[in-house]
Amino acid sequence: MSAKNAQAGSSLWRDAWLRMGRNKAAMASLAVFTLMVFLCFVLAWFCKDPNAVTLTNKFAPPSGDHWMGTDALGRDLFSRILYGGQISILVGLVATAVSVCIGVSYGALSGFAGGRIDATMMRVVDTLLSIPFLVVVIVLQAVLSDWSSDTSSWIVTHWKWDKTFTDRLTNIVPLFFALGLFGWLTLARIVRAQVMSLKEREFVEAARALGYNRFRILVRHIIPNTLGPTVVYATLTVPGFIMYEATLSYLGLGVEAPNSSWGILIKEGANFMETHPGLLLIPGIFFSLTLFSLNFLGDGLRDALDVKASKD
Protein backbone atom coordinates (compact mmCIF):
# COMPACT_ATOMS: atom_id res chain seq x y z
CA MET A 1 0.00 0.00 0.00
CA SER A 2 1.47 3.36 -0.98
CA ALA A 3 1.87 6.18 1.48
CA LYS A 4 -0.77 8.19 -0.26
CA ASN A 5 -3.34 5.48 0.08
CA ALA A 6 -2.53 4.98 3.72
CA GLN A 7 -3.08 8.63 4.35
CA ALA A 8 -6.37 8.63 2.50
CA GLY A 9 -7.39 5.63 4.54
CA SER A 10 -6.56 7.23 7.83
CA SER A 11 -8.40 10.42 7.05
CA LEU A 12 -11.42 8.37 6.12
CA TRP A 13 -11.40 6.77 9.53
CA ARG A 14 -10.75 10.08 11.22
CA ASP A 15 -13.75 11.57 9.44
CA ALA A 16 -15.79 8.64 10.55
CA TRP A 17 -14.72 9.20 14.14
CA LEU A 18 -15.70 12.82 13.97
CA ARG A 19 -19.09 11.96 12.55
CA MET A 20 -19.61 9.42 15.24
CA GLY A 21 -18.78 11.95 17.92
CA ARG A 22 -21.76 13.97 16.81
CA ASN A 23 -24.13 10.99 17.13
CA LYS A 24 -25.78 11.25 20.55
CA ALA A 25 -27.12 7.71 20.68
CA ALA A 26 -23.80 6.26 19.67
CA MET A 27 -21.89 8.29 22.24
CA ALA A 28 -24.29 7.35 25.02
CA SER A 29 -23.93 3.72 23.99
CA LEU A 30 -20.19 3.99 24.03
CA ALA A 31 -20.37 5.31 27.57
CA VAL A 32 -22.64 2.47 28.69
CA PHE A 33 -20.46 -0.14 27.05
CA THR A 34 -17.30 1.30 28.58
CA LEU A 35 -18.99 1.26 31.96
CA MET A 36 -19.91 -2.41 31.50
CA VAL A 37 -16.38 -3.30 30.56
CA PHE A 38 -15.10 -1.38 33.56
CA LEU A 39 -17.55 -3.14 35.89
CA CYS A 40 -16.80 -6.62 34.63
CA PHE A 41 -13.10 -6.42 34.10
CA VAL A 42 -12.00 -3.99 36.82
CA LEU A 43 -14.57 -3.70 39.56
CA ALA A 44 -15.18 -7.46 39.57
CA TRP A 45 -11.79 -8.10 41.17
CA PHE A 46 -12.86 -6.08 44.22
CA CYS A 47 -16.14 -7.97 44.66
CA LYS A 48 -17.11 -10.95 46.76
CA ASP A 49 -16.13 -14.45 45.71
CA PRO A 50 -18.74 -15.30 43.05
CA ASN A 51 -18.57 -19.01 43.87
CA ALA A 52 -18.90 -18.87 47.65
CA VAL A 53 -21.87 -21.08 48.46
CA THR A 54 -23.99 -20.43 51.56
CA LEU A 55 -26.89 -22.83 51.24
CA THR A 56 -28.81 -21.37 54.16
CA ASN A 57 -28.79 -17.92 52.59
CA LYS A 58 -30.38 -18.84 49.28
CA PHE A 59 -32.64 -16.39 47.45
CA ALA A 60 -31.76 -13.57 49.84
CA PRO A 61 -33.28 -10.24 48.81
CA PRO A 62 -30.94 -7.34 47.98
CA SER A 63 -29.22 -5.98 51.04
CA GLY A 64 -26.12 -4.04 52.03
CA ASP A 65 -24.25 -7.31 52.11
CA HIS A 66 -25.54 -8.66 48.82
CA TRP A 67 -26.40 -5.69 46.60
CA MET A 68 -28.52 -7.72 44.24
CA GLY A 69 -29.41 -10.60 46.48
CA THR A 70 -28.24 -14.18 46.24
CA ASP A 71 -29.03 -17.08 43.94
CA ALA A 72 -30.38 -20.59 44.55
CA LEU A 73 -27.19 -21.66 46.31
CA GLY A 74 -26.77 -18.46 48.28
CA ARG A 75 -24.05 -17.03 46.05
CA ASP A 76 -23.73 -13.28 45.59
CA LEU A 77 -25.61 -12.40 42.41
CA PHE A 78 -23.83 -9.12 41.77
CA SER A 79 -20.36 -10.60 41.67
CA ARG A 80 -21.61 -13.56 39.67
CA ILE A 81 -22.96 -11.13 37.10
CA LEU A 82 -19.70 -9.20 36.93
CA TYR A 83 -17.54 -12.31 36.65
CA GLY A 84 -20.00 -13.84 34.20
CA GLY A 85 -19.83 -10.67 32.14
CA GLN A 86 -16.12 -11.22 31.55
CA ILE A 87 -16.87 -14.47 29.81
CA SER A 88 -19.93 -13.24 27.95
CA ILE A 89 -18.39 -10.01 26.67
CA LEU A 90 -15.29 -11.89 25.62
CA VAL A 91 -17.27 -14.64 23.91
CA GLY A 92 -19.59 -12.16 22.20
CA LEU A 93 -16.78 -9.99 20.87
CA VAL A 94 -14.28 -12.67 19.91
CA ALA A 95 -16.83 -14.92 18.25
CA THR A 96 -18.27 -11.97 16.35
CA ALA A 97 -14.85 -10.77 15.28
CA VAL A 98 -13.98 -14.24 14.03
CA SER A 99 -17.25 -14.62 12.18
CA VAL A 100 -16.94 -11.16 10.61
CA CYS A 101 -13.41 -11.85 9.39
CA ILE A 102 -14.34 -15.17 7.83
CA GLY A 103 -17.81 -14.17 6.67
CA VAL A 104 -16.82 -10.92 4.96
CA SER A 105 -13.81 -12.26 3.15
CA TYR A 106 -15.58 -15.46 2.15
CA GLY A 107 -18.78 -13.76 1.03
CA ALA A 108 -16.98 -10.98 -0.80
CA LEU A 109 -14.69 -13.36 -2.62
CA SER A 110 -17.57 -15.60 -3.60
CA GLY A 111 -19.78 -12.80 -4.84
CA PHE A 112 -16.98 -11.03 -6.65
CA ALA A 113 -15.55 -14.09 -8.35
CA GLY A 114 -18.91 -15.32 -9.57
CA GLY A 115 -19.29 -18.31 -11.84
CA ARG A 116 -18.05 -21.71 -10.76
CA ILE A 117 -16.03 -20.42 -7.81
CA ASP A 118 -19.06 -18.66 -6.41
CA ALA A 119 -21.26 -21.69 -6.93
CA THR A 120 -18.79 -23.98 -5.18
CA MET A 121 -18.23 -21.61 -2.30
CA MET A 122 -21.92 -21.09 -1.74
CA ARG A 123 -22.67 -24.81 -1.86
CA VAL A 124 -20.07 -25.25 0.88
CA VAL A 125 -22.03 -22.73 2.90
CA ASP A 126 -25.26 -24.64 2.21
CA THR A 127 -23.62 -27.82 3.45
CA LEU A 128 -22.25 -26.26 6.60
CA LEU A 129 -25.62 -24.62 7.32
CA SER A 130 -27.29 -28.03 7.25
CA ILE A 131 -24.92 -29.93 9.54
CA PRO A 132 -26.61 -30.72 12.85
CA PHE A 133 -24.81 -28.39 15.20
CA LEU A 134 -25.39 -30.46 18.33
CA VAL A 135 -23.57 -33.44 16.84
CA VAL A 136 -20.55 -31.27 16.14
CA VAL A 137 -20.67 -30.01 19.71
CA ILE A 138 -20.83 -33.53 21.15
CA VAL A 139 -17.90 -34.65 19.05
CA LEU A 140 -15.89 -31.55 19.91
CA GLN A 141 -16.66 -32.08 23.56
CA ALA A 142 -15.37 -35.63 23.39
CA VAL A 143 -12.25 -34.59 21.50
CA LEU A 144 -11.45 -31.40 23.36
CA SER A 145 -12.50 -32.14 26.93
CA ASP A 146 -9.13 -33.60 27.78
CA TRP A 147 -7.38 -31.01 25.69
CA SER A 148 -8.55 -28.21 27.98
CA SER A 149 -7.33 -29.72 31.22
CA ASP A 150 -4.09 -30.98 29.65
CA THR A 151 -3.27 -27.60 28.16
CA SER A 152 -4.15 -25.91 31.39
CA SER A 153 -1.89 -28.09 33.48
CA TRP A 154 0.90 -27.71 30.92
CA ILE A 155 0.69 -23.93 31.09
CA VAL A 156 0.53 -24.00 34.88
CA THR A 157 3.64 -26.19 35.20
CA HIS A 158 5.70 -24.54 32.46
CA TRP A 159 4.68 -20.93 32.57
CA LYS A 160 3.63 -20.78 36.25
CA TRP A 161 0.33 -19.07 35.49
CA ASP A 162 -2.41 -18.87 38.08
CA LYS A 163 -4.32 -22.16 37.96
CA THR A 164 -7.89 -20.86 38.32
CA PHE A 165 -7.28 -18.22 35.69
CA THR A 166 -5.70 -20.67 33.24
CA ASP A 167 -8.50 -23.18 33.72
CA ARG A 168 -11.08 -20.54 32.94
CA LEU A 169 -9.20 -19.47 29.86
CA THR A 170 -8.54 -22.92 28.38
CA ASN A 171 -12.12 -23.93 29.01
CA ILE A 172 -13.54 -21.30 26.71
CA VAL A 173 -11.13 -21.83 23.84
CA PRO A 174 -13.07 -24.84 22.45
CA LEU A 175 -16.12 -22.62 22.65
CA PHE A 176 -14.61 -20.08 20.26
CA PHE A 177 -13.79 -22.93 17.99
CA ALA A 178 -17.35 -24.26 17.94
CA LEU A 179 -18.92 -20.83 17.53
CA GLY A 180 -16.39 -19.63 14.98
CA LEU A 181 -16.91 -22.72 12.86
CA PHE A 182 -20.54 -21.94 12.16
CA GLY A 183 -21.11 -18.32 13.09
CA TRP A 184 -20.09 -16.78 9.80
CA LEU A 185 -22.37 -18.62 7.37
CA THR A 186 -25.35 -16.32 7.09
CA LEU A 187 -23.08 -13.28 7.15
CA ALA A 188 -21.22 -14.68 4.17
CA ARG A 189 -24.52 -14.96 2.30
CA ILE A 190 -25.45 -11.38 3.13
CA VAL A 191 -22.09 -9.97 2.08
CA ARG A 192 -22.18 -11.97 -1.13
CA ALA A 193 -25.60 -10.63 -2.06
CA GLN A 194 -24.32 -7.09 -1.50
CA VAL A 195 -21.18 -7.65 -3.49
CA MET A 196 -23.06 -9.12 -6.41
CA SER A 197 -25.16 -6.00 -6.53
CA LEU A 198 -22.24 -3.63 -5.99
CA LYS A 199 -19.94 -5.09 -8.59
CA GLU A 200 -22.30 -4.07 -11.35
CA ARG A 201 -22.46 -0.47 -10.12
CA GLU A 202 -21.09 2.49 -12.02
CA PHE A 203 -18.25 3.25 -9.64
CA VAL A 204 -16.90 -0.26 -9.93
CA GLU A 205 -17.05 -0.08 -13.68
CA ALA A 206 -15.29 3.25 -13.50
CA ALA A 207 -12.56 1.72 -11.38
CA ARG A 208 -12.26 -1.11 -13.84
CA ALA A 209 -12.02 1.30 -16.73
CA LEU A 210 -9.18 3.01 -14.88
CA GLY A 211 -7.34 -0.29 -15.04
CA TYR A 212 -7.21 -1.03 -11.32
CA ASN A 213 -6.62 -4.66 -10.64
CA ARG A 214 -9.47 -6.84 -9.42
CA PHE A 215 -8.13 -7.34 -5.93
CA ARG A 216 -7.77 -3.63 -5.37
CA ILE A 217 -11.30 -3.03 -6.59
CA LEU A 218 -12.62 -5.65 -4.22
CA VAL A 219 -10.74 -4.44 -1.16
CA ARG A 220 -10.82 -0.69 -1.69
CA HIS A 221 -14.16 -0.18 -3.36
CA ILE A 222 -16.52 -3.04 -2.79
CA ILE A 223 -15.86 -4.36 0.71
CA PRO A 224 -16.07 -0.92 2.35
CA ASN A 225 -19.50 -0.56 0.83
CA THR A 226 -20.71 -3.79 2.38
CA LEU A 227 -19.68 -2.66 5.84
CA GLY A 228 -23.08 -1.17 6.63
CA PRO A 229 -25.08 -4.41 6.53
CA THR A 230 -22.07 -6.25 7.94
CA VAL A 231 -21.94 -4.07 11.03
CA VAL A 232 -25.69 -4.33 11.47
CA TYR A 233 -25.73 -8.09 11.11
CA ALA A 234 -22.62 -8.60 13.21
CA THR A 235 -24.06 -6.69 16.14
CA LEU A 236 -27.21 -8.78 15.75
CA THR A 237 -25.30 -12.00 16.19
CA VAL A 238 -23.63 -11.02 19.46
CA PRO A 239 -26.59 -11.98 21.69
CA GLY A 240 -26.92 -15.23 19.77
CA PHE A 241 -23.32 -16.13 20.53
CA ILE A 242 -23.68 -15.18 24.17
CA MET A 243 -26.78 -17.36 24.60
CA TYR A 244 -25.25 -20.22 22.64
CA GLU A 245 -22.38 -20.21 25.08
CA ALA A 246 -24.80 -21.17 27.86
CA THR A 247 -26.15 -24.13 25.91
CA LEU A 248 -22.68 -25.30 25.03
CA SER A 249 -21.47 -24.92 28.60
CA TYR A 250 -24.23 -27.23 29.72
CA LEU A 251 -22.94 -29.78 27.26
CA GLY A 252 -19.49 -29.51 28.75
CA LEU A 253 -17.98 -27.32 26.05
CA GLY A 254 -17.32 -23.99 27.64
CA VAL A 255 -17.59 -22.46 31.05
CA GLU A 256 -17.12 -25.06 33.77
CA ALA A 257 -19.36 -24.96 36.83
CA PRO A 258 -19.37 -23.23 39.27
CA ASN A 259 -18.14 -20.39 37.06
CA SER A 260 -20.84 -18.49 35.33
CA SER A 261 -21.74 -16.31 32.41
CA TRP A 262 -24.68 -14.10 31.53
CA GLY A 263 -26.13 -16.80 29.34
CA ILE A 264 -25.98 -19.35 32.14
CA LEU A 265 -27.39 -16.90 34.69
CA ILE A 266 -30.30 -16.07 32.39
CA LYS A 267 -30.91 -19.71 31.53
CA GLU A 268 -30.96 -20.72 35.17
CA GLY A 269 -32.79 -17.59 36.26
CA ALA A 270 -35.57 -18.30 33.76
CA ASN A 271 -36.37 -21.44 35.73
CA PHE A 272 -37.28 -19.33 38.74
CA MET A 273 -39.38 -16.74 36.92
CA GLU A 274 -42.49 -17.57 38.91
CA THR A 275 -40.83 -17.43 42.31
CA HIS A 276 -37.72 -15.27 42.10
CA PRO A 277 -37.97 -13.12 38.99
CA GLY A 278 -34.95 -11.10 40.07
CA LEU A 279 -32.65 -13.96 39.14
CA LEU A 280 -33.79 -13.59 35.54
CA LEU A 281 -34.39 -9.86 35.46
CA ILE A 282 -31.13 -8.55 36.91
CA PRO A 283 -28.73 -10.51 34.68
CA GLY A 284 -31.16 -9.84 31.83
CA ILE A 285 -30.82 -6.09 32.36
CA PHE A 286 -27.03 -6.22 32.29
CA PHE A 287 -27.14 -8.39 29.19
CA SER A 288 -29.67 -6.20 27.39
CA LEU A 289 -27.97 -2.93 28.30
CA THR A 290 -24.70 -4.18 26.86
CA LEU A 291 -26.36 -5.36 23.69
CA PHE A 292 -28.40 -2.20 23.29
CA SER A 293 -25.26 -0.18 23.54
CA LEU A 294 -23.43 -2.44 21.11
CA ASN A 295 -26.21 -2.14 18.56
CA PHE A 296 -26.57 1.61 18.74
CA LEU A 297 -22.80 1.78 18.58
CA GLY A 298 -23.00 -0.38 15.48
CA ASP A 299 -25.61 1.91 13.97
CA GLY A 300 -23.43 4.90 14.70
CA LEU A 301 -20.49 3.19 13.10
CA ARG A 302 -22.58 2.30 10.08
CA ASP A 303 -23.77 5.89 9.71
CA ALA A 304 -20.27 7.18 10.12
CA LEU A 305 -18.93 4.92 7.41
CA ASP A 306 -21.90 5.45 5.14
CA VAL A 307 -20.79 8.60 3.33
CA LYS A 308 -18.25 6.67 1.32
CA ALA A 309 -20.91 5.11 -0.81
CA SER A 310 -21.44 8.34 -2.65
CA LYS A 311 -17.97 9.75 -2.18
CA ASP A 312 -15.88 6.99 -3.62
Binding site: A52, V53, L55, L73, G252, A257, K267, E268, N271
Partner: peptide, 14 residues
Protein backbone atom coordinates in the same frame (compact mmCIF):
# COMPACT_ATOMS: atom_id res chain seq x y z
CA UNK B 1 -26.65 -31.52 31.44
CA UNK B 2 -29.73 -31.04 33.62
CA UNK B 3 -30.08 -27.87 35.66
CA UNK B 4 -30.74 -29.78 38.90
CA UNK B 5 -27.73 -32.04 38.39
CA UNK B 6 -25.62 -28.96 38.03
CA UNK B 7 -27.00 -27.27 41.14
CA UNK B 8 -26.48 -30.46 43.18
CA UNK B 9 -22.96 -30.76 41.83
CA UNK B 10 -22.13 -27.18 42.72
CA UNK B 11 -23.48 -27.63 46.22
CA UNK B 12 -21.44 -30.81 46.77
CA UNK B 13 -18.38 -29.14 45.31
CA UNK B 14 -18.66 -26.42 47.93
Amino acid sequence: DKETSKATAEAMQA
